[in-house]
């Protein structure tokens, strides 16, 4: 069995140091601004920080991947081109793109730069993936979180590039790169502004009894009683009154993806890289999750069963799922 690359998130230089020190094979991170899909206040890297981060990681044998995976609005391509140019100049090991124009620019201006296709591209069929490989020389595809392991295995047999699959972290019920729920509520696009549920539009109200209401823009997303675990204020994880039911998680519950039990299957299915979600999370999260999956991957390589009980404390709503990977069909 091929040893997979463990690809880990970092939202700040401190997060990158934590990921590298915890045993990441590669760390993915983005520049400040809308060029990446985690454009939150206080997050991401200035060009100077990115250059230093690359040096830190490379000195320790870890790759750094540039997430430039949002979609430039019309006439605003300059920031995305600058991000690609900086990533190449700093010697980043791959550029992760979603937009066809950014992919074309990278392939044309920097033909030797390794190119990965972001999950945001939503390429889930061999035909789509082969198009990106043929036209832009994409070397790896990050698969959308809507496929079963059997489907991943089938795709692997029909494409010329590597496969990267999410194994842990936030998961929503959406068509990756096409979701407009947050944009509907806030006016800011997840895919072009790089932020789902922008913090500036999120409000929490807790009453004296400890009951918590979370709002996105003018919409109430959920109400948690004082003894309930809370979740992220994303519309796809909201609880609604519908014609069918009241207080109903109409799309998806607050839950995190955890594919630890499926790691051996994923590795046998031809997955080259295992991805941990969470650039918006803290350094403590990165250190804990990366260390746990470092041990887990190493254990799988030695046919041992990994112990991952500690990770439940870091999951949304204190619940975890295998999502579509385990065969789940959304409503």
């Amino acid at each position: 069995m091929h040893r997979p690359e463990l690809v880990c998130p970092a939202g700040t230089p401190a997060g990158l140091h934590a990921a590298v020190d915890a045993g990441a094979d590669a760390v993915y991170c983005g520049f400040q601004g809308p060029t990446n899909a985690r454009n939150f206040p206080g997050l991401n890297f200035s060009p100077r920080e990115m250059e230093q981060a690359v040096t830190y990681a490379h000195d320790r044998g870890t790759k750094v991947l540039a997430a430039i995976n949002s979609f430039p609005p019309a006439g605003q391509m300059a920031a995305w081109k600058r991000a690609v140019d900086d990533a190449v100049r700093f010697g980043m090991d791959a550029v992760i793109v979603a937009d066809i124009g950014v992919a074309a620019y990278t392939a044309r201006m920097h033909p030797d730069q390794r190119l990965h296709l972001s999950v945001q591209a939503g390429a889930s069929s061999p035909e789509a993936i082969n198009f990106y490989c043929r036209e832009f020389g994409v070397r790896r595809v990050v698969l959308p979180r809507i496929l079963t392991v059997a489907e991943i295995k089938g795709i692997h047999a029909q494409i010329p590039c590597e496969i990267e699959a999410f194994i842990f972290g936030n998961i929503g019920m959406m068509a990756e790169g096409r979701c407009s729920l947050s944009a509907y509520a806030t006016g800011q696009s997840t895919n072009m502004d790089g932020v789902c549920s922008p913090a500036s539009h999120v409000h929490y109200l807790q009453d004296e009894g400890g009951n918590l209401k979370s709002l996105l823009g003018e919409f109430t997303i959920d109400c948690f009683t004082c003894d309930e675990s809370a979740g992220y204020p994303t519309i796809c994880k909201g609880r609604y009154d519908t014609e069918i039911r009241t207080g109903y998680y109409a799309f998806e519950e607050p839950v995190s993806l955890n594919l630890t039990p499926l790691l051996p299957e994923l590795m046998r299915a031809g997955v080259t890289a295992l991805k941990i979600e969470g650039r918006q999370r803290s350094r403590a999260y990165v250190a804990a999750v990366v260390a746990a999956f470092r041990k887990a991957v190493d254990a799988c390589m030695e046919n041992r069963v990994p112990d991952m009980a500690g990770l439940i404390a870091l999951t949304e709503g204190h619940r975890e799922t295998q999502g579509a990977f385990g065969g789940r069909k959304w409503r």
Binding site: T12, P41, G42, V202, Y204, Q206, L212, C226, S229, A230
Partner: peptide, 24 residues
């Protein structure tokens, strides 16, 4: 926050920026 041990109210954007700045 998920376990309700931390409560955040008001300007969430400023609080998130503070969290990330301190974390770094």
């Amino acid at each position: 926050f998920f376990t309700r041990k931390l409560v955040v109210e008001g300007d969430t954007g400023a609080v998130v920026a503070l969290r990330n700045a301190m974390d770094d």
